[in-house]
């Protein structure tokens, strides 16, 4: 392998129609952001899958580490009082 700089990896997010959020749909290679957008259009919206595209170079994404999943996510599990079903109300109460 040469030590050449290859086209970096980009993550592609596509909004399938207005009103919906952008969703991650895959990745691709491109030399710069303009090319990344053009490539994303040609690779990921060939079948009218989108009305808007975001691209971000993969290295700029900061991700949580699954090894820390315990401390990151489990403490939320027992906070049931954040959910409406935690509260006991008589059945007669409407609009609540």
């Amino acid at each position: 392998m040469s030590d050449k700089k290859n086209w970096p990896l980009w993550e592609v997010f596509v909004r399938s129609k207005n009103g919906l959020e952008h969703r991650h749909c895959g990745s691709l290679h491109a030399a710069d952001e303009d090319m990344a957008l053009e490539n994303a259009r040609d690779v990921y919206t060939r079948r009218s899958e989108g009305v808007s595209i975001w691209v971000v170079e993969s290295k700029h994404i900061t991700a949580s580490n699954p090894e820390n999943n315990g401390e990151m996510f489990e403490p939320a599990h027992d906070k049931v009082y954040r959910h409406p079903t935690f509260y006991d109300l008589p059945d007669e109460v409407k609009h609540m």
């Binding site: 700089k5 030399a31 710069d32």
Partner: peptide
């Protein structure tokens, strides 16, 4: 071609 695109991207940056 790929090299040119990288070189151009760096210049632009």
């Amino acid at each position: 071609v790929r090299d040119a695109a990288m070189a151009y991207a760096e210049k632009k940056q």
